[in-house]
Design a protein around this nucleic acid. Structure first.
Lengths: 215, 215
DNA sequence: GCCGAACCGTAACGTTCGTTACGGTAGGAT
DNA sequence: ATCCTACCGTAACGAACGTTACGGTTCGGC
């Protein structure tokens, strides 16, 4: 286990270096090299190795650093009527789509996917933990509270609802971006998508709709 | 452009070599090497280069070969009532989930994603064309026919519906698999997911439901 | 039997890149 | 002033791997 610096206590210089690594990741993808990072960051390779141990350590630290920069939406669980739940979910979807569509997120996920294939030091689980799982962790209590407040219809597994919400929001956008499809999501488009997804989710799982739900 | 063999006319030996490459891809991921493929296929590297030009050509041919093996569901556009449309969509979803969850598909998509990052000879667009886009091509006429037969509510853009169907079926399954999450989808689970997704899609877009649809 | 084409197995070459080593500089402490 | 620490820039090392070259074998055609 190469763990030289905790992301909690990074000096400003170290953060700058990781930002340079992030930029390298976005522009050079998987093929970023220790030399290119050091050149970008105007630092020596010796420093990279002292701080991060090896290439894997640098990549891991970079992924963690980016994850720590993504704001995690906070939600108040009180006053849960249908209106506020919808608004919350919509905001959630908007933020999330914005992250997913960003260059850094795409580069990061590409790297993690590559790495998950090669088996080394899984970046995959890190990205999963700080991406999807972090979202699920925030969202599931809200869904359960909404169920208890009779705003959502009864359900047993919050995972199922989360999965459906995920699907309605992300659709085929992420995989297309990862595969290099040139789609650009402007702010208005994201807002519209978030609104549609939220409306559909409420239609499927809202307390007042008894349409087809769980299998 | 390195194009040595068309996938249409591959000798059996060549197919066997590509199957070996496929196996190597599944087990070694991005880091598969010309040597490992030749060893697996019991062929010489010289042959690999003669047939496929270079490493990129081999990978491209492998991706095309796998794509050509995936059965494309065929659909009859006649007799479109709600029942048959549901059955068609459900079958579609089932097949699709089965493909997405397979080891080869995961390995293939990982490779394509890595490659899309590095910019080389896009495998990404090939996978996109033979995956998502092939599905969209088959599905959109059906959706439009269903609309004209008043089985689905009115819509302008079939893309929107396709995206929603995609999301409801795939949800977070593909990205989790790509990132290395250890989920196993048994046949019954896939069937249940396909049924749920289809039910939800019909609930959202069926002609007899006027719930929230397009933005 | 003989020839050439196709192919196998392996050795060899060159490049890239991770990793390490080294000389030099700035700044703070003693 | 001296020393020590942290850092920069660059050169050097070694392994992995794509690519090429070569000798040996099989096999169909004459």
């Amino acid at each position: 286990m190469t763990m030289h610096v905790e992301i909690a206590d990074l000096t400003e210089r170290q953060q700058a270096v990781l930002d340079a690594a992030l930029a390298a990741m976005v522009e050079e993808g998987d093929g970023l090299t220790m030399t290119s990072v050091s050149r970008r960051a105007s630092c020596s390779k010796e420093t990279l190795y002292k701080w991060f141990g090896d290439r894997d350590g640098l990549l891991t630290a970079t992924v963690r650093w980016q994850a720590s920069k993504v704001p995690v939406p906070t939600i108040d669980r009180d006053r849960l009527d249908e209106k506020t739940l919808s608004a919350t979910l919509e905001q959630f979807a908007r933020d999330w789509l914005g992250v997913i569509a960003s260059d850094t997120s795409v580069a990061l996920n590409r790297l993690a996917v590559s790495n998950a294939g090669s088996g080394k030091s899984d970046l995959g689980s890190i990205v999963l933990k700080n991406g999807r799982n972090a979202m699920a962790l925030r969202l599931k209590p809200v869904l359960e509270a909404a169920r208890d407040a009779k705003v959502l219809a009864h359900f047993d597994e919050a995972d199922t609802l989360f999965g459906s919400f995920f699907g309605l929001v992300i659709r085929d956008v992420q995989i297309r971006l990862l595969l290099g499809d040139a789609i650009k999501l402007s702010g208005p488009v994201i807002a519209a998508d978030a609104a549609r997804a939220t409306g559909q989710f409420m239609a499927l799982y809202g307390a007042n709709n008894q349409t087809k739900r769980e299998g």
